[in-house]
Design a protein around this nucleic acid. Structure first.
Length: 569
RNA sequence: GCGCCUAUAGCUCAAUUGGAUAGAGCAACGGACUUCUAAUCCGUAGGUUGCAGGUUCGACUCCUGCUAGGCGUGCCA
């Protein structure tokens, strides 16, 4: 598709230049030629609104311009183009010759799992940082959504030629983990029978810490009571971080997400980089002292308030290690860095960008996206709130457990990933547990998987009937004459550009929709036309090639999303 | 108060970044299994794209002002 588009692009450009040279068209310069979607077959295979765009410059009616451009195309010289129409307000609709369709099938057959890849991002290194949940509790559902999106984005970027990695930033330093230590301390002492204790304000109430405290008490007894409070809390903090991080890793692995790099905030703080960052900020005049603290001039970057970077007690606020961490990313040589943040970090985006700017990194080097919140919706459609602090929330593991009860472990992961990926990043996602569990069979993910399974089933049946696929060279693809076959191949040809668009926009949901559309053409085709037809062997072989291609694209697409492609259902 | 996000069919969401008649899935209604898997298909119905202006050949998309909801908002990350 991309090569054919390039070819058509070239032909149109030459035609416009020829029209200008001949004096038929008077325009200062030829803009880039855009392509518009062709929603119906009548609009051809490739369409462009270029004539509409030139109307103002050329001071001519769009349809007239389209006619002039088309008049300068010699159809005989371009066998790939079967027919050119001018339609609507002045759209140029191009119908391609059938051998283009055959070339598409040829390409898919040759490339197999590589179909959809390109080298657009060759030589560029991208880091995607996502999840990065505090090591203070089990991963919640928003983290699950971020995990699915980040994981898929990395797949997409690698597919279009980037070298992309998954990175998790562990916030294992600072106030939050301090309160984790304090909370575990309370639970531990409670487990040993101490009474009148309460989790302090801002601490973690969750049941998981009660269990953890109990486990420590059971296995190690009261040895920690001999330590001073400060030392004991610090010990529990470190034990807690290690324990919870391990749980988080397990959850992510179960969800099919494997990070390439785990970074530690503690390590960053101890690396000397924060001091260096502060020095640079100070030298650049970004800092000043007030009220016993050190402030960063966010207002110099257009923000309405300055921010404290060093507290009056001498500790850094999160801005310093965050800036140092991004400096670290830059020093590691990434051409682009993508941060996927949770919904409660919206205000942090501009701060982060300002800090990075103050460190002299290019404006477009850092991309920040918010993965919006996930609302759990119950049977009545009522939204339930999630608060980690209050300890009432559904974890990613709970979600998969619950789905697995009905559809099994593998499909549970598939369904959860699909749900998380089906919406654009910054829309709030309503996750209807009841629907996902009780109406599992109506879930859209099965629609796509079922299409794949049906393809597999055809080959199984074919084998039994002695109708195994033949090599494409020995098949007469001209036998694919049905309009639906034409439509199917057009959709297959779109796959690489769907992947490219999705990756460049950092929007994984586009691939989901693409696959759903592909399945939406395949199922009706399957219903109306028999592939295996012993009465017409030639047609059967041609259709088997088509089905192989559909199966291949479905599988490649599902693999990008981390969703399985079952051979039977 | 200020900043960011969101508002599209009864519900949940798309719309290739300004293009042709705004599309899917649920839910509703009516049909199709002696034929490669009915987790499927075919059909019907459903809209002033929150409101009011503006920009232009053309607006769900961009600009301004409203309205409603969510998140955030100087020593948490």
């Amino acid at each position: 598709m991309d090569t054919i588009k390039a070819e058509v692009h070239d032909i149109l450009k030459k035609a416009i230049h020829a029209a200008v040279a001949a004096g038929d068209l008077s325009i200062a310069e030829v803009p880039d030629i855009p392509f518009s979607p062709t929603k119906t077959p009548e609009h051809g295979d490739v369409a462009t609104p270029i004539a509409l765009g030139l109307a103002k410059q050329a001071r001519m009616a769009p349809r007239k311009i389209a006619e002039i451009i088309v008049a300068h195309i010699n159809l005989d010289a371009h066998p790939t183009i079967r027919q050119i129409d001018i339609a609507g307000a002045g759209f140029i609709n191009i119908h391609l010759a059938d051998n283009w369709l055959h070339d598409t099938l040829q390409t898919i057959t040759e490339m197999q799992s590589a179909y959809g890849t390109c080298d657009k991002g060759a030589g560029k290194h991208v880091q995607i940082e996502f999840v990065s949940a505090n090591p203070t509790g089990p991963l919640n559902i928003v983290s699950g959504r971020a995990a699915a999106v980040g994981d898929t984005l990395v797949n997409l970027l690698n597919t279009i030629g980037y070298k992309a990695i998954r990175e998790f930033y562990v916030n294992d330093a600072g106030g939050q983990v301090q309160r984790l230590g304090e909370s575990i301390d309370i639970r531990y002492r409670q487990a040993l029978g101490e009474e009148g204790l309460e989790i302090p304000e801002g601490g973690y109430q969750g049941e998981y810490l009660r269990e953890f405290g109990q486990t420590i008490a059971d296995t190690e007894g009261n040895v920690y009571l001999q330590l001073g409070t400060k030392e004991r809390v610090a010990t529990f903090r470190d034990k807690g971080i290690a324990h919870i991080l391990e749980q988080q890793k397990k959850s992510l692995e179960r969800f099919g997400v494997n990070f390439d790099v785990w970074s530690s905030e503690k390590a960053i703080r101890e690396s000397g980089k924060p001091e260096e960052i502060v020095r640079v900020f100070r030298e650049n005049g970004c800092l000043y002292e007030a009220e016993g603290a050190t402030w960063f001039r966010m207002t110099d970057f257009g923000d309405d308030k300055d921010c404290v970077v060093i507290k009056s007690d001498g500790e850094y606020t999160y801005f310093v290690p965050d800036a140092a961490y991004h400096r670290d990313k830059f020093d590691r040589g990434f051409t682009t860095v993508v941060d996927l943040l949770g919904p409660d970090h919206q205000g942090h985006i501009t701060h982060l960008k300002n800090l990075v700017k103050a460190l002299g990194m290019p404006d477009d080097w850092l991309e920040v996206f918010i993965i919006q919140q996930v609302n759990l919706v119950d049977a009545e459609g009522k939204r339930s709130d999630m608060s980690k602090r209050r300890g009432q929330f559904l974890t990613l593991d709970d979600l998969i457990d619950e789905l697995a009860e009905t559809v099994g472990e593998q499909f549970a992961v598939d369904v959860a990933r699909y749900f998380f990926l089906m919406r654009s990043n910054n829309t709030h996602l309503d996750f209807n547990m009841e629907l996902a569990v009780t109406h599992a069979s109506e879930n859209p993910v099965f629609y796509i998987q079922y299409a794949h399974a049906r393809c597999c089933s055809i080959f199984e049946q074919g084998d039994e009937q002695g109708l195994a696929p033949k090599p494409i060279e020995e098949v007469s693809l001209k036998r694919l004459t049905e309009p639906m076959e034409h439509e199917l191949i057009r959709k297959l040809a779109e796959f690489p550009s769907a992947v490219l668009l999705s990756a460049e926009a950092r929007e994984a949901h586009r691939v989901v929709h693409y696959l759903h559309e592909l399945a939406g053409i395949f199922h009706p085709y399957y219903n109306q036309h028999r592939v295996l037809d012993p009465a017409d062997i030639e047609k059967t072989y041609a259709r088997l090639i088509l089905i192989q291609s559909v199966q291949r694209v479905l599988k490649n697409g599902l693999t990008l999303l981390g969703i399985s492609a079952p051979t039977s259902m």
